[in-house]
Design a protein around this nucleic acid. Structure first.
Lengths: 248, 248
DNA sequence: AGTCATTTCGAACATCTAGTCAATATGAGA
DNA sequence: TCTCATATTGACTAGATGTTCGAAATGACT
């Protein structure tokens, strides 16, 4: 019998074979179900994560180059190198993909701005830090800047968190030559335009400090105050850098 | 013979009639051609102008509400209330229609800014005047603002003239805390964002003077200088208004 | 080498969109 | 009322785009 996986039953008016392997599988169903299904799901999930990331990456590559509204599903799947049907196993629509890109951006915003929010108490310095971090990121990663600029046009509400924090800081600013709401829009306007400019790579020479200084003056600080805030900001950055150097 | 419009010629192996009316028309061809064709063309041109304006108007209405890139020919002809074929007798493509809208915008820019360019010599005051005129227009015509904002995103090169003039003024500004190119982008960023904000009708209360003041401070004027320029600007505006009142 | 839960694939279908063109409408003048 | 140069019309074609779904591929495990 050994070595033969098949058992024969006959004499009941029936004649059939039973694959013993199947019988065994059926017998061990509960263990197999637990082990196999969990592992299988894990494997699948890993594959899904990779493909999904490809799609998001493709969307970012496309959004960096042209209007969000002009990108099609075909564009995305071609850029990602996957089949069309695959897109729809990950996203219901282009809108959902765009939302995913927006979410990644918002997360990168938070990573950029959170340090300053926890470490700095003075409103003007917090604003300066945030703007500086934003501008540095845009300066060092033109594609990020381009995508952020395009998303800000197509999906303005996704920056609502930043706006809220910034408005809060502006309201705690001393002096009241203009409403905090207006100052907010002025700062946001400058920042978004810097995203566009840096994203397109124009502006031969670029001085981040000059931008921060302009923003501070625009929201009501005197040139002297702006200079002072900028000095503190640079000192903090230098300290951070020397700490990093010391640590490494 | 009289009363018979037909002349008969026979005896030459031929037999045919000539319609004298046709002969007369042919005889008077040059006069008819001049009178009829010129008038006919004029009538046609008037009709064309109206229909073309409808199409441009429809495009503006659509551009005010959503991204230029998302508007289709079908959208335009439906909004304009004309047939699809009509679109193509006026424009080669959507791009051509968009260019027409851009041209109208550029013309409105010039009408807005030309007075200040000829009447004002001082760079800071020229800049302030231009910004103020722009902002007032956006404030009083939200749809204009929305269209201009959308076009600035889709068709950035159409504002090149304004940018050139503005850069020129910025380069003649005294004091050099930052490059004129950077100041240009800061001013443009604020202006475009104001177009967006006013085009969407958010910003409950709005103070145009505060925006101009913020711009002047952002490009390097001290609060005192900015205040002085603003005072001159308002004085000039008041004078103009009183002149208008006197004239009327 | 065989199994199979899961993902991926791409052909197929429906809809949308750009662009064309023969037919029709317009309207001032005869 | 009739004419006719011109503008307008809208059905039509071809191709782009969105969406679905059964078939094929994947890959860890036995």
């Amino acid at each position: 019998m050994q070595g033969n996986r098949y058992a024969s039953l006959s004499g009941f008016g029936l004649d059939f074979q039973v694959n013993m392997t199947y019988l065994k599988v059926e017998f061990e169903e509960s263990r197999m179900a637990n082990v196999n299904l969990i592992r299988r799901a894990e494997i699948g999930r890993e594959k899904r994560v990779r493909t999904r990331a490809q799609l998001v990456e493709a969307a970012k590559a496309l959004f960096a180059g042209r209007a969000v509204e002009s990108v099609t599903v075909d564009d995305v799947v071609q850029e990602a190198g996957v089949a069309k049907g695959t897109f729809y196993t990950h996203f219901d629509s282009l809108e959902a993909l765009t939302a995913a890109v927006a979410e990644e951006l918002v997360q990168s915003f938070d990573e950029l701005l959170q340090p300053g929010r926890t470490a700095i108490a003075e409103p003007a310095l917090r604003i300066a830090f945030g703007c500086r971090a934003f501008i540095d990121k845009a300066f060092n990663d033109a594609r990020w800047a381009a995508v952020a600029a395009r998303m800000s046009a197509a999906n303005p509400q996704s920056g609502e968190n930043i706006r809220r924090h910034l408005l809060d800081d502006l309201q705690h600013l001393s002096g009241e030559p203009a409403s905090a709401e207006l100052k907010l829009e002025i700062v946001v306007g400058i920042m978004i335009h810097m995203l566009r400019v840096l994203g397109e790579g124009r502006l031969s020479s670029f001085d981040p400090d000059a931008v921060v200084s302009a923003i501070l003056r625009a929201i009501g600080l005197s040139p002297q105050q702006a200079g002072s805030v900028l000095k503190h900001l640079l000192a903090a950055a230098g300290m951070e850098k020397s700490l990093q150097t010391t640590a490494s």
